[in-house]
């Protein structure tokens, strides 16, 4: 049972995008950032990391009309069979780019079932794991 959540510290990000590559390889067996469930965009003086925060009170789950998104243990997970690509979750999510549709599929982080590849391979400390406490989970919903 996963007891950790991913902590995102964009200030530490160096913009290497290795997270995107290991994500797409893990889930699709190919390398393609467009298929990645985490994206990094370089701005002049920092990087934006776009991915699901697994909020404690997820707006996407509330918005989903088909029940494709649900909270399982600490995570928000997608049941692809139920998803009709309506995009309601994308509109409801407060984090731009956290959810995307590419190649007829909603791209949604599942934390690799508890050991996220992006965290394992992050060289800078921008992505780490931390034990979930109520306070931490709440903080995780803030931008």
């Amino acid at each position: 049972m996963p007891s950790d959540l991913r902590k995102i510290n964009a200030k530490e990000c160096v913009g290497c995008r290795i997270c995107e590559l290991v994500c797409s390889l893990k889930h699709y067996g190919v390398i393609n950032p467009q298929r990645a469930r985490i994206r990094v965009y370089r701005l002049e003086e920092w990087d934006e990391i776009e991915t699901c925060r697994h909020c404690k009170k997820p707006k996407c789950v509330e918005a989903c009309p088909t029940g494709a998104l649900e909270i399982v243990e600490d995570r928000v997970v997608l049941d692809r069979e139920k998803c009709n690509l309506c995009g309601a979750c994308i509109e409801a999510c407060p984090f731009p780019g956290a959810l995307r549709i590419f190649d007829n599929e909603l791209l949604k982080c599942d934390l690799c079932g508890g050991e996220p590849e992006c965290v394992t391979h992050c060289p800078s400390g921008a992505l780490t794991l931390r034990a979930v406490t109520a306070a931490a989970a709440a903080e995780n919903t803030e931008i």
């Binding site: 160096v14 290497c16 290795i18």
Partner: peptide, 28 residues
């Protein structure tokens, strides 16, 4: 200001530099 990496690089040897003021003021 900070270290930056090229694509898929764990060394991240690049840097973003800032000269805050004066006639050589610049950032990049």
């Amino acid at each position: 200001g900070r270290s930056e990496s090229c694509f898929s690089c764990i060394i991240h040897c690049s840097n973003y530099a800032v000269v805050k003021d004066g006639k050589y003021k610049c950032r990049g």
